[in-house]
């Protein structure tokens, strides 16, 4: 076994292939890759009366099974049968309803986790799941800081279920079903930057109504779905510990080290191989 020119070049060629695979994708907070401004939703919990109507509208828009909600429902969690869930919370100022669904992060953890790009951030803002690509590894569920993607464990051909911001309705020029049908206009669809301005305006004009915080403006690097609340967010069970930096940033350092390691380590190893080769013949016998 010897290292000749050809083996060396063969090795270098394969390294170049490995190098080309390891690039890093980045996205800014408010804009998608090509500069289009992201759309989003502003959810005003002071307006929401917790009528559960959006749950039915959501199921209808996604041709899913209608939810079966009892009169005074116990606290419910998102599961594989629904894309959104509304819970009424008893708080210091009385009942406040909280609608949970995908937050459509500007830089989502799930799309950074997905190895087939089945989880995909569209140019307009929605984060969608693409059935023809997913292999069901559920890394998106591990990664999502809001615990949103749900998996059909019962099925032999399972799907990942999550809100897609009615991407099909958006394509037809409509707005998401929950926002369209909301009787209280608690859900406002629009450009993310406009929504932030709108949210600030509401807080400034009605300082007694709102807590001075827009949940989702900075959480996980900024999300397209943002919340205004009449009570401190902790009372509604919001996770305030979620980091303000984007989640893909956590793995960026490692990913950008892949290409250099793939290129430099083989070179280094070949160097060590050559450097230790001549001495080996001397020590060969007295080792064993």
């Amino acid at each position: 076994m010897s290292l000749n020119r050809r083996t060396f070049f063969k090795a270098m060629g394969a390294t170049a292939v490995a190098l080309s695979v390891g690039k890093v994708s980045t996205a800014s907070e408010a804009f998608s890759d090509n500069g289009t401004e992201l759309n989003g939703m502003l959810y005003d919990m002071s307006r929401c009366v917790g009528c559960f109507g959006c749950e039915y509208d959501c199921a209808e828009a996604h041709e899913a099974e209608m939810p079966d909600i009892p009169r005074n429902p116990p606290p419910r969690k998102l599961d594989e049968t629904c894309r959104t869930v509304v819970n009424r919370h008893e708080t210091s100022i009385g009942m406040v309803a909280f609608k949970d669904q995908c937050r459509h992060c500007s830089e989502p953890a799930c799309t950074a986790a997905c190895l087939t790009m089945a989880m995909y951030k569209t140019q307009e803002g929605p984060v969608i799941w693409r059935e023809d690509k997913c292999m069901g590894c559920r890394y998106c569920m591990i990664a999502c800081p809001f615990d949103i993607p749900k998996f059909e464990y019962k099925s032999t051909n399972p799907k990942v279920v999550k809100c897609d911001m009615c991407v099909n309705r958006l394509a037809e020029g409509e707005i998401p079903a929950c926002s369209y049908f909301c009787p209280e206009e608690a859900l406002t669809y629009g450009k993310r930057s406009d929504l932030i301005k709108e949210a600030r305006t509401r807080i400034i004009e009605n300082p007694d109504t709102y807590v001075d915080y827009i949940y989702g403006e900075h959480e996980a690097g900024g999300t397209s779905w943002m919340y205004l609340s009449p009570v401190p967010f902790e009372e509604l069970g919001f996770n305030m510990k979620i980091q303000k930096k984007s989640f893909p940033g956590l793995t960026k350092g490692f990913i950008s080290s892949i290409a250099p390691v793939d290129l430099l380590l083989p070179t280094f190893l070949l160097g060590v191989y050559q450097a230790t080769k001549s001495t080996s013949t001397i020590t060969e016998e007295d080792e064993i």
Binding site: G22, A113, L115, T116, M117, D132, Y139, I255, I258
Partner: peptide, 12 residues
């Protein structure tokens, strides 16, 4: 390559 999620650790 349907698709290559090159920014995914799991892909690596």
């Amino acid at each position: 390559g349907n698709d290559y999620g090159v920014s995914s650790i799991l892909f690596l």
